[in-house]
């Protein structure tokens, strides 16, 4: 009972003495990536994934709310006081955004090899995003007097759901400008590949969302 400390040490640290011999050997590894293991996902990649998750959950709730209100409304949808939504202009916008995923994808693929190609591709994507936002604004001008945000729940849904999405595309465009600025300012030697890859995830998400919202807001009133 006297040697509790020794007992404790053995419980906690086991064969401390036997391992002692090896401990003095210093190891210098240069402390950078370990050759044998794959590079792995970055914290930034996971950050973007979770951000997309939480945004996706919000838009899912919003779209669900759209259908909830639509099916708890008796009679026609949109209500008789509103006209059917315009399909063409927002359709073009959605198409442009979806197609811009191609240059985005190409930019990711080239970002490690040929940075001179990446840059113009990203500029193209940014322009596409801007086009989408502008076309959304044009659509509002078409819808306006017939539907307004405060006239009825239909109008509130139409303007807020699409508006929130367009706002996110706007943020995506700003983030894209930051990536482009980084490439210009830091030259193309420093790795901007990680940033491009993470940015692309968000962009694909925005495009998928655009399709879901287009179908919900602009197409289902015609078929249901």
């Amino acid at each position: 009972m006297t040697d509790v400390n020794a007992a404790l040490r053995r419980t906690r640290i086991g064969d401390r003495e036997t391992a002692q011999g090896e401990t003095e050997r210093a190891v210098r590894r240069g402390a950078w990536p370990v050759a044998e293991t794959p590079a792995g996902r970055t914290t930034g990649w996971w950050g973007m994934l979770l951000f997309i998750c939480t945004e996706a959950a919000m838009f899912a709730c919003f779209i669900a709310s759209y259908y909830y209100l639509r099916f708890s409304t008796d009679g026609s949808w949109p209500p008789v006081s509103d006209k059917l939504p315009h399909r063409i202009v927002p359709g073009i916008g959605t198409g442009v955004l979806v197609l811009s995923c191609l240059p985005m994808f190409a930019a990711v693929r080239t970002s490690r090899k040929s940075r001179a190609v990446t840059f113009p591709l990203l500029v193209l994507v940014t322009l596409a995003g801007t086009t989408f936002v502008v076309l959304q604004a044009v659509d509002y001008m078409q819808e306006y007097p017939s539907s307004t945000p405060s006239k009825d729940a239909y109008g509130s849904l139409l303007f807020t759901l699409t508006g929130l999405h367009a706002f996110h595309v706007g943020i995506g465009v700003l983030m894209m400008l930051l990536v482009l600025g980084g490439q210009l300012a830091r030259g193309f030697k420093k790795p901007q590949a990680g940033a491009t890859r993470v940015m692309a995830m968000y962009w694909y998400f925005l495009a998928v969302l655009a399709v879901a919202i287009y179908i919900t807001v602009y197409l289902t009133p015609y078929i249901m």
């Binding site: 709730c61 709310s65 009825d152 509130s156 807020t160």
Partner: peptide
């Protein structure tokens, strides 16, 4: 997200006169 959405809708209803929760307006 659902809480945020609900509060956003509430704010818009209250401040900008939107109709998400207004039973009389759909």
């Amino acid at each position: 997200p659902p809480l945020d959405l609900a509060n956003l809708m509430l704010f818009l209803d209250r401040r900008l006169g939107m109709r998400f929760f207004d039973t009389a307006k759909g």
